[in-house]
Simulated assay, not measured.
Amino acid sequence: MKLGLHSLRAYNFFYFSLLSIFISFLPVYLTHRNVSPGEIGMMIGVGSFVGILSQPFWGMVSDRYKTIKRIILLTLGASIAVGMLLFTTMHFSLLFLLVAAMYFFLLPTDPLTESLNYRIAEQRGISFGSIRTFGAVGYATASLYIGWTVDQLGMDRLAWLFLGYGLLAFACALVVADAPASSKALSLQELKQFFLYPKTLRFFLLVLIAATPHRTNDSFLGVFVQSLGGSTGAVGQAWFLAAISEVAFFALSARILQRWSEIKLIGWATALYTIRYLLCALAPSAEWVVYLQLTQGVTFVIFYTATIQYLYRIIPEEWKATGQTVLAVLFFGISGIIGSIAGGWVFQQFGGAALYMAMAAFSLVACIYSLTLSRSLGMKKES
């Protein structure tokens, strides 16, 4: 029993280390290849569109064959091969195709991993955060190490770092236990009713509005830090501080979720997102932006764990993996398209400060909307 949990935690550590290379350093790598902010936004936007199709696809495959582990092995293995090509190609025209391929394989591995974490946590009677914390630690340490390594040895080392973390994640995934499968039969009619239910639609709209500025930050934090004079090492430090701040909040997430309603917590998180992005817009130097990433824990962790718990409470058992991927479509797909394409245009036309001011405004809209949903969704709890 303990060995299985250790394997799952090790897999989370190395998988999210791998993910940090793609999310945190892909824009920096593309900048190194002389790709403009507008073109970066277009590449990530196209990739996010691919993710809209790929994430539900892999989620439904997982539900259909009642396995999460084997699908993870398939998508992760393909991601390692594509990633090596992406970080070694010298042809600009191939970058679009390879980024899109990464969104087809690597990004759907994220919701599958979260579904695996959540289901095994339920089965073992432990908190989701006690497993996911190791992913945050992996993301944090990898961000710091990769930023330092690239600063010292050059951008060409990124491909080999990706390969190393990828192989370690794959090896750990091989010995992870599969998630317990639902014994209930799949029903497309039930799924259709669920997604057309007004409560579900209002909740997903809230997630979309709140996630858009977060995904914009994912795409342009590194470019913004460098535009203020920061080095690649400073980008790594920013992502390290963001990820390490998640560790404490993942550890506390179970207690926080027991005490307050999910929608109320999302409202608090979006209010703090507003303050965070506003301060980034007003930051006088790259160093300020780097240290402001310490607020990632209280914003992202509270927002993300609250959305997952609410979704798992209202979705039918047999569609949980699919529901998780739909959430990921909003978080990594649609919001990613809006944030990357519009964000790239704003960055190129008006600069990074204007972009972060717009992100603060978007987060404020999400905060106000969450307050209107708190009563209509009937989610109030006594604090």
Rank of each mutant, 00 (worst) to 15 (best):
H6F: 15
L85Y: 04
W260S: 09
F96I: 13
V301C: 05
I23S: 08
L221P: 03
L174D: 07
A254G: 01
T299L: 11
S143T: 09
A251C: 09
E287H: 14
V137S: 08
A354T: 11
I71F: 01
F300H: 10
V346K: 02
R64A: 03
S231T: 12
T67P: 10
L371G: 13
V290D: 02
A169K: 02
Q324C: 07
D156Q: 15
S17K: 02
I120L: 12
S261W: 01
Q237C: 12
Q293S: 09
S231Y: 00
Q226P: 02
T299I: 11
M60A: 14
A269E: 02
R202V: 09
V46M: 12
V137E: 02
T88P: 04
G154A: 05
L97P: 11
I71P: 00
R375N: 15
P27H: 01
M84F: 15
I263R: 06
L85W: 05
T149G: 10
E39H: 11
V235I: 04
A366M: 03
A242N: 03
T89N: 09
K66W: 07
A248D: 08
K2L: 15
A181N: 05
Q258W: 05
F224R: 07
S183N: 15
A243S: 14
F49T: 13
A254C: 01
I275E: 02
A173L: 07
W148H: 12
H6S: 15
I72A: 04
S363C: 12
F362W: 15
H91W: 14
L85S: 08
G351N: 07
A271K: 04
V137K: 04
A142T: 07
S340M: 09
F347Y: 11
L86Y: 08
L191C: 11
A136K: 03
L371H: 13
G351W: 12
S370W: 00
I338P: 05
F249W: 08
I334C: 07
K380N: 13
R64K: 13
L279Y: 06
T372V: 10
Q258K: 14
S127I: 03
H214K: 12
P56F: 05
V289E: 05
T307E: 08
Q226A: 09
A366R: 01
Y11R: 06
A136L: 02
A171Q: 09
A286T: 05
Q152W: 13
A121S: 11
K2C: 13
L19N: 02
L174V: 13
S127W: 00
K199L: 10
L278Q: 10
F194S: 08
V137C: 07
